[in-house]
Amino acid sequence: MHGEYKVPGGKLVVVDLDVIDGALRSVRVAGDFFLEPDEAITAIDTALEGAAAETDTAGLAARIDAALPRGTVMYGLTSEGVAVAVRRALSHATNWTDYDWRLIRDAPQSPALHMALDEVLTSEVAAGRRPPTLRVWEWAEPAVIIGSFQSLRNEVDPQGAARHGITVVRRISGGGAMFVESGNTITYSLSVPASLVSGMSFADSYAYLDDWVLNAFADMGIKAWYQPLNDIATEAGKIGGAAQKRMVATDGGPGAVLHHVTMSYDIDADKMLEVLRIGKEKMSDKGTKSAKKRVDPLRRQTGLSRQAVIDRMLDSFRNRHGLTAGQVTPEEMARAEELARTKFANPEWTARVP
């Protein structure tokens, strides 16, 4: 069995192993990390040898920590990262380069249709009828998108939303509210087979699926990092947030994960504060007194146009994983339009948590 895992902000860890009578055998850990002293790599292999195949990530990491020589120093490597690579080997996880990635980049759509497209396209990946897909959103109108479990009245000021012509919709993933305006945000979705994040915790999968965009920012000279659980941050402040929804396997398919991200290219913070109700508890949690200071737009950090930022992001993805132009099929669009009408534009769904 073979497993690979790139430690967030670190290096690639590769594990090869057998399972005999329910135990790990012939374990070999490798990668482009740095490790001192030399004998530490043998200690890691030995620590994993004989471990029960059902041992979870925490248990495997504890075995490694207990076996490391005194004074061991890891660069680009963690015990948890090795353990995740083991779990990925055991679950026959896939990697980015195992797939023919498709790009969907269409004309501006309504907020409700964007919600529906996410659900339809990810369900198609879950059923095995669509390859993994990266979809870049364009907005036909300004919107607030609240998380699946958020209270509508606690998150949105209805008078502010009406005054600024803001459409409010609810998405299928959890997380917090997103304030978007055409030309001021960069939003994308990844619809991926569940096997791509197999062996990872939810937190691990967020970091793993955000890694490509962190590399894209690095190519643009921006030092960005994943900040648990779902933020993309820089030294100047937060620039984006992610949310996920898991979909079970259907029709014999692999199951899928929807991972979507909204980043601020250029935000009207005053308008946002008139539309969103951002509580004191959220401010204290972020270590700041002002919502304006929470998000630092990409326009200021890059000096590039929004279109140039998106193009460079896609070039970075294409160079690392491959990316072929695709499209929403007529059948998928028909389903999405019906779902937008009956669900995502339906006030009962939007207010399902009043």
Rank of each mutant, 00 (worst) to 15 (best):
G322S: 11
P131I: 06
G322C: 10
G160I: 12
D56K: 06
K245V: 04
V120A: 10
W137E: 06
P254N: 08
R25L: 00
E332Q: 15
G9N: 11
I145R: 07
T329P: 05
P193K: 06
P132D: 10
V73C: 10
Q150P: 00
E4G: 13
G174T: 09
P111D: 13
A52K: 02
D204P: 11
T302I: 03
L298C: 04
V180D: 07
A83F: 09
G59M: 09
A30F: 03
V73M: 13
G128F: 05
A23G: 03
A216W: 06
G81F: 07
G237R: 12
T350D: 00
S91A: 08
D219N: 08
G199I: 09
I267K: 11
G279L: 05
S205P: 06
R277W: 14
V261W: 03
V180W: 08
E141D: 06
T133W: 12
E80R: 14
D211R: 07
D21M: 00
E348A: 15
I145K: 05
A30Y: 00
L229K: 12
H164V: 01
H260V: 00
R153Q: 12
S195H: 11
F317E: 11
W212N: 08
N154S: 15
K6I: 13
R63H: 01
T46N: 14
S284W: 05
R129C: 02
H2D: 01
G9H: 11
W96F: 14
G59R: 09
Q244R: 13
R320P: 03
A30H: 01
D285H: 10
R130G: 11
L12S: 05
E39Q: 14
Q109L: 10
E4M: 13
A62F: 09
